[in-house]
């Protein structure tokens, strides 16, 4: 019961973010405007459109999402699979850290008004593409490595065969 209650609280907080977006001041270029030269493109304009309050609201929105995703993953885990739940939470912490770094690096760039490059992209974009994209692969590793132990064990298979056999033995099993 604890996990669903936590999830409900997270969801209510997300509703709060949506409500907060209605009362937070949005810059004229807040969601992009038509490019000054090319009509079929948009431009974001000055990075100052991401004021401190907008960035904070965005960071909260992102962190709530990470928490919600990890919460949903744990909802799928058996209650006795503590190792799985621990692995998911630890992976979630790494995920949240990378997201925070992405926002932080972007904020630094806004403050210095110049784009620092890492590889081929501005630093914050590099964190998004090469950090935030692959880091949830930790969950995939947990799934693949822990599959037989926590997701579908030989005992589960045997138990399911029994349930199936019992159901087939019922004279008029409802479909």
């Amino acid at each position: 019961m604890k996990t669903p209650l936590i999830l409900l609280c997270l969801l209510v907080a997300m509703c709060g973010v949506v409500v907060a977006s209605f009362v937070t001041e949005e810059a004229p270029t807040g969601r992009g405007v038509t490019h000054s030269t090319f009509e079929t493109m948009d431009e974001g304009g000055p990075a100052s459109r991401h004021t401190h309050s907008v960035l904070t609201l965005g960071w909260i929105f992102g962190m709530l999402q990470v928490a919600l995703f990890v919460g949903f993953l744990t909802l799928a885990a058996r209650r006795d699979a503590r190792g799985l739940i621990r692995a998911l939470i630890l992976s979630g912490v790494a995920y949240a850290e990378v997201f925070t770094i992405t926002v932080f690096v972007y904020q630094q760039n806004v403050a210095t008004a110049e784009a620092e490059f890492i590889g081929s992209f501005p630093a914050a974009t590099t964190w998004m593409l090469f950090g935030l994209w692959p880091v949830p692969f930790l969950f995939v590793v947990v799934y693949v490595v822990g599959f037989r132990r926590w997701v579908w064990s030989p005992d589960d298979r045997e138990r399911f065969e029994q349930i199936l056999a019992a159901r087939k033995a019922q004279p008029e099993a409802p479909q």
Binding site: G32, G45, Q65, N109, A124
Partner: peptide
């Protein structure tokens, strides 16, 4: 041309971009 276009949020901005992510 426009640093925001190649920032992690693109021209849409942080909150809009994250709503798509969600």
């Amino acid at each position: 041309d426009d640093p925001e276009a190649i920032s992690p949020w693109g021209t849409l901005g942080i909150i809009g971009g994250l709503s798509w992510y969600f």
